[in-house]
């Protein structure tokens, strides 16, 4: 099987909609196929990685901790765009996992290099 480049593009905040969790689950399931997987976090998607989420009071299962398992699944390319962070008053230090902060232009180049782009 030839290895393809898959990018999961995350543009939604967590919990308000199901997109963030669905994306994470598909990434984890897809990791079994040993493809070249990366994740991009842009627009409200950067909120998915905000440190210190505690969902107890809203009665929804939280998944901040699960981003920490991505490394075990060999998903290590996590791109976060600088402009989206800045607009939301966030920096890389506010995020729960190590990421590569890139400009939107650089993110666009990464997208262009993919075989498959999945949008969430």
């Amino acid at each position: 099987m030839t290895i393809k480049k898959f990018m999961f593009v995350n543009r939604k905040a967590p919990y308000g909609t199901i997109y963030a969790l669905e994306s994470l689950e598909v990434v984890l399931i897809g990791a079994a196929f040993e493809q070249d997987v990366s994740m991009a976090f842009t627009d409200d998607g950067v909120y998915q990685l905000k440190k210190g989420q505690n969902t107890k009071a809203i009665g929804i299962k939280g998944f901040e901790k699960t981003y920490g398992a991505l490394e075990d699944y060999d998903v290590t390319k996590l791109y976060v765009d600088q402009e989206s962070l800045t607009a939301r008053g966030l920096t890389a230090e506010d995020l729960c996992v190590p990421v590569e902060v890139v400009s939107r232009a650089e993110l666009g180049k990464h997208m262009e290099a993919q075989d498959v782009v999945l949008s969430f």
């Binding site: 905040a13 967590p14 919990y15 909120y47 905000k50 440190k51 210190g52 989420q53 505690n54 969902t55 107890k56 009071a57 809203i58 929804i60 939280g62 901040e64 008053g89």
Partner: peptide
């Protein structure tokens, strides 16, 4: 709403 701030990790900002 406090519970929504906490869930999103932004209660302290």
């Amino acid at each position: 709403l406090g519970p929504d701030l906490e869930a999103r990790g932004v209660a302290d900002r």
